[in-house]
């Protein structure tokens, strides 16, 4: 009755429309119910991935530790799996050495870049420099490895004649360069989120930009900066290709950066590409090493998340 005013042709359309909908109801109703189920399935993939990683590492590691004592594994100082010595300490020190060198390079450079970008650079300069710096993070690690081996090592050798072809120093420096954009970019974000009125308050009292940066901005952004550093270090621990290519494959319990060493990650590559047969002790050992690596990076990531969660509470 209320449709009395309506155009007749359109009126038919509307009726058809409603009818159509009623007829399709059963199908579209089914879709409405199926879609969330399918999406839940998608979301469960990420949970299953985590479960898969844990299960894989755990199961194969347990097999490994049934033939090699876990105590000997974590206290042994000799890693030569092909002659039956599974002491993981040299791989751990190798990893720590690379990480330490990388941190020595990346933390000061990354932080100073962040301070420059956030406190000194003009808006235009920041808009150009920041993305360019982030290009560094997009370069494949195999390319870094190539560059470390063919350019950085020969360059360093001209200063340090005793430097080996494969050495921790070159690899560590290049890993450090690789993580600079992570520290610079995330720290800059943290500094940028410091409210401007804090800066203006200090500047109005006659402080220089430097004093503002160190006495106001850095303390306020401290946890954000720390979180970025921890995250970057976690990245360095897990880095594989640069160390495989440039640091060599000689597990050594040493902190001498001029020598060739092997990291946890590098051994996994070596163990998986060699003549390792499925089911051999060496095969299982790469999972024990992988589990060790996983624990290291997981702890670092959780630390980073913990720090940045605290950071959020401050504002």
């Amino acid at each position: 009755m209320e449709k009395a005013f309506k155009d007749e042709t359109i009126d038919l359309d509307v009726q058809a429309l409603i009818d159509n909908k009623r007829k399709k109801k059963s199908i579209s109703g089914k879709i409405e119910k199926l879609v969330p189920a399918f999406l839940l399935l998608c979301a469960s993939v990420s949970v299953l991935t985590t479960a898969g990683i844990l299960f894989t590492l755990l199961r194969e590691s347990i097999t490994f530790f049934s033939s090699t004592s876990i105590f000997d594994f974590y206290t042994g100082t000799q890693w030569s799996p092909w002659s039956g010595h599974f002491g993981v300490l040299p791989l751990i020190t190798g990893t720590l050495l690379i990480t330490l060198i990388a941190a020595i390079v990346a933390v000061p450079l990354g932080l100073m870049s962040a301070i420059f970008l956030s406190e000194y650079a003009s808006n235009r300069a920041r808009k150009i420099i920041k993305p360019t710096l982030e290009v560094l993070a997009g370069i494949p690690t195999v390319v870094y490895g190539f560059f470390a081996l063919t350019f950085v090592t020969p360059l360093l050798k001209s200063f340090l004649p005793g430097l080996g072809v494969f050495n921790a120093l070159s690899a560590g420096i290049v890993v450090g360069i690789m993580i600079i954009p992570m520290i610079a970019s995330l720290s800059e974000d943290a500094m940028n989120s410091v409210p401007n009125n804090l800066r203006e308050g200090a500047l109005a009292l006659g402080a220089t930009k430097l004093e503002v940066a160190f006495k106001v901005v850095l303390p306020a952004a401290f946890s954000g900066i720390m979180a970025s550093i921890v995250l970057a270090i976690s990245r360095a621990i897990g880095e594989t290709m640069i160390v495989v290519i440039a640091a060599g494959a000689s597990p050594a319990l040493t902190f001498d950066p001029t020598r060739s060493i092997q990291t946890l990650t590098a051994f996994i590559v070596q163990g998986a590409t060699g003549d390792t047969t499925f089911g051999s002790t060496i095969y299982y050992s790469i999972y024990a090493v992988g589990a060790t690596l996983f624990i290291f990076t997981l702890l670092m990531n959780m630390l980073s998340q913990y720090i940045s969660r605290k950071f959020r509470e401050e504002y």
Partner: peptide, 19 residues
């Protein structure tokens, strides 16, 4: 709206849109 409710024909849609 019409599309969501199953109207797909271009001619009908044109008419509905104009009206």
């Amino acid at each position: 709206g019409p599309r969501v409710h199953g109207v797909k024909k271009k001619a009908v849609l044109d008419q509905v849109v104009e009206k």
